[in-house]
């Protein structure tokens, strides 16, 4: 086994201009340059992309699913943030 293994990188690909970069998967690479090249060879072999981001996985801070209650549930009862909350007559237009 290698003394030090290649770190893991997350790959984000923009499929075409106008769309956001989307998480495509991950791979191993020794550094950012190689990670970009490997991402090109691994994830865009069938013309899947026009732009690639790579981020070393350890640099991503992820929320903990155990905290999902306090993180995300408080948003559930704020219906007034959505247009359907407001009652307007049916025949009103341009709104």
């Amino acid at each position: 086994m290698s003394k030090k293994n290649w770190p893991l990188w997350e790959v984000f690909v923009r499929s075409k201009n106008g769309l956001e970069h989307r998480h495509f998967g991950s791979l191993h690479a020794p550094d950012a340059d190689m990670a970009l090249k490997n991402a090109r060879d691994v994830y865009t072999r069938r013309s899947e992309g026009v732009s690639i981001w790579v981020v070393e996985s350890k640099n991503i801070k992820a929320s903990n699913p155990d905290d999902n209650g306090e993180m995300f549930e408080p948003a559930a009862d704020k219906a007034y943030r959505h247009p359907t909350f407001y009652e307007l007559p049916d025949d009103i237009e341009h709104m």
Binding site: W6, H28, K37, N38, D41, V42, R45
Partner: peptide, 11 residues
Amino acid sequence: PTLETDIALTN
């Protein structure tokens, strides 16, 4: 030497 390099060389 790695899967990533294998794929790159094949390209």
